[in-house]
């Protein structure tokens, strides 16, 4: 468990013990990884529970995952037991003293997003992440997240259902993420998660079929880090004037990666795919961030957020 106060930060009024966030879909409903000896939820400032819908969902058929260069595709399809089971059967088993717990809300309609958020509002959950960017379901998900007007409608509906911090998880699969972020801020979003996975495909050349049962999936892992960093930077420019924080995420697998996200404008940094090969990566990243802070004479981790020094663009446009 991390207890170095220099890593602690304020996120929408919540105290995070470290800037790390265990990402939705990677750590189940908060208990699964605690079986691994040496793992502690307390090494992260928060954990996001698996995406939750109003009714139970079975999710997609196999195969749901495929390894790709520098990453992986997944198409789980929001398998979950439904919000009532999560609130009544799973939350009572969680130790809320370990870390902050964030619910992840999904739905096929605006009304479903509202209802799931309302039910989490009446629970010990610390904050609610609105997943309008799941690429692996037929209705809702990224179909909402790639349409700025729909994104804002979903956020506005969830806003009516709760006063807990609302974090909107933005899709990288859209033309102008900053424009979408603007609409979500106006609709009442308190924070952003940037980014969800990038839509992709892998093909088995012998069978000539996509490896993933759902044909397409969401790409995560180190392969997407440069895309994620740029998106965080773009959203930061819109969100910072409103004091709206970002959980930067996409391929973080070292302290240096985490610091890049902080510099690009993230207040907290998500860890997901990297846990799959290194379940004890969080304490290593925490130690690396502290080492960086020592070397740069920084007293608190928030001083890194947005400290990016952009290069001066050339006076004449390039000819490419």
């Amino acid at each position: 468990m991390s207890d170095d106060p220099r890593l602690a930060l304020d996120f929408c009024g919540l105290r995070f013990a470290t800037p790390l966030v265990l990402l939705s879909g990677c750590v189940g409903f908060g208990r699964e990884y605690t079986r691994v000896e040496g793992f502690s939820n307390g090494d992260a400032g928060a954990l996001c529970l698996k995406g939750t819908t109003l009714e139970p969902r079975l999710g997609n058929p196999a195969h749901r995952i495929a390894e790709t260069p520098g990453g992986m595709l997944n198409a789980i399809g929001l398998q979950n037991p439904g919000v009532d089971a999560v609130v009544k059967e799973i939350l009572p088993d969680l130790d809320f003293s370990e870390t902050r717990v964030i619910a992840n809300v999904s739905g096929a309609t605006v009304e479903e997003y509202y209802e799931v958020t309302r039910r989490f509002d009446d629970s010990p959950i610390d904050a609610i992440e609105i997943n309008i960017s799941c690429p692996n379901v037929k209705a809702g998900g990224v179909a909402f997240g790639n349409d700025p007007a729909m994104s804002a409608r979903v956020v506005a509906a969830c806003r009516k259902a709760t006063r807990k911090p609302l974090i909107t998880k933005l899709s990288p699969n859209q033309t102008d993420i900053a424009d979408n972020a603007r609409g979500c801020i106006e609709a009442g979003s308190d924070a952003f998660s940037v980014i969800n996975t990038l839509m992709g495909m892998a093909i088995d050349v012998e069978s000539r079929a996509p490896v993933i049962g759902n044909n397409q999936g969401g790409l995560s892992g180190p392969a997407i880090k440069p895309v994620a960093l740029l998106k965080v930077h773009q959203v930061y420019e819109v969100a910072a004037p409103h004091g709206i924080p970002i959980i930067g995420q996409g391929g973080v697998s070292s302290a240096e990666d985490a610091i890049e996200f902080l510099l690009a404008g993230a207040t907290a940094v998500g860890v997901g795919t990297a846990l799959f090969y290194d379940p004890l990566i969080c304490p290593r990243i925490n130690a690396g961030i502290l080492d960086y802070m020592d070397r740069h004479g920084l007293a608190e981790v928030a001083q890194i957020t947005g400290a990016l020094r952009l290069n001066t663009p050339p006076a004449t446009p390039c000819r490419c």
Binding site: Y33, R35, K50, H63, N74
Partner: peptide, 15 residues
Amino acid sequence: EFMACGVGGCAGCTV
């Protein structure tokens, strides 16, 4: 089945 986390966290290996 293809497996990611191996500890029940990702639901990637379901049957």
